[in-house]
């Protein structure tokens, strides 16, 4: 008798606990269903549209996000640098390369909860393409660090994990064609100050 109760309880615990935990796990994955990965960056072009998959729908409902529309732009999120190591707020990085055609783009850093990191209050928390210093071949090189750097400097502070978010506005790649064919800048680790 007791054995039967135990087995029923075990079955229910696995079913409810396992079912709920697996949904929670999948929805928290940065690289979840519907993601398009280009180099170090990940985007969800279909997130928040009516013709997306159930996982993206659940994510939109749970997080209460209002995603950018196709005519507005597309956001790319980076979690790792080009060597595959997690991005840390205590480290210095160089974001280097060219950005696909768009009217303009912005880049900013976010903490684990995807809140904007405002490194220095006197500086804007993000950089945009209109204020970029460019190389001769039109590529850009952005220093992301806690300490000031010459050229384009995105100031961060604090410790722990961070994300870099590159948002392209009014871009042709946000339409259904060719999201996978574009090239995005690489994130190279310069060093860590632990």
């Amino acid at each position: 008798m007791l054995k039967t109760i135990f087995l029923v309880a075990l079955t229910l615990a696995i079913a409810i606990g396992g079912g709920a935990a697996s949904v929670w796990y999948v929805l928290n994955l940065q690289n979840g269903v519907g993601a398009v990965t280009i180099g170090d960056w990940t985007a969800f072009p279909d997130l928040g549209t009516p013709d997306t998959d159930p996982y993206s729908k659940a994510r939109v409902a749970r997080e209460g996000i209002l995603t950018l529309g196709r005519a507005e732009g597309l956001a790319f999120v980076a979690e790792n640098d080009s060597s595959g190591a997690e991005l840390r707020r205590g480290c210095s990085y160089t974001v280097q390369g060219t950005v696909p055609p768009s009217r303009f783009w912005t880049i900013h850093a976010a903490d684990e909860g995807m809140n904007v990191i405002n490194g220095l209050k006197q500086r804007a928390p993000a950089l945009h393409s209109y204020e970029m210093l460019r190389e001769q071949d039109n590529s850009v090189s952005i220093a992301v660090s806690r300490t000031p750097a010459p050229g384009n400097w995105l100031a961060v502070d604090g410790t722990g994990k961070m994300f870099l978010i590159l948002t392209l506005y009014d871009t042709t790649i946000a339409s259904s064609t060719g999201v996978a064919d574009v090239k995005l800048p690489r994130i190279i680790k310069v060093g860590c100050n632990a």
């Binding site: 079955t11 696995i14 079913a15 409810i16 606990g17 396992g18 079912g19 709920a20 697996s22 949904v23």
Partner: peptide, 9 residues
């Protein structure tokens, strides 16, 4: 339990 977890998921 595993089948149930799938259904709950």
């Amino acid at each position: 339990g595993l089948v149930g977890a799938g259904i709950v998921h």
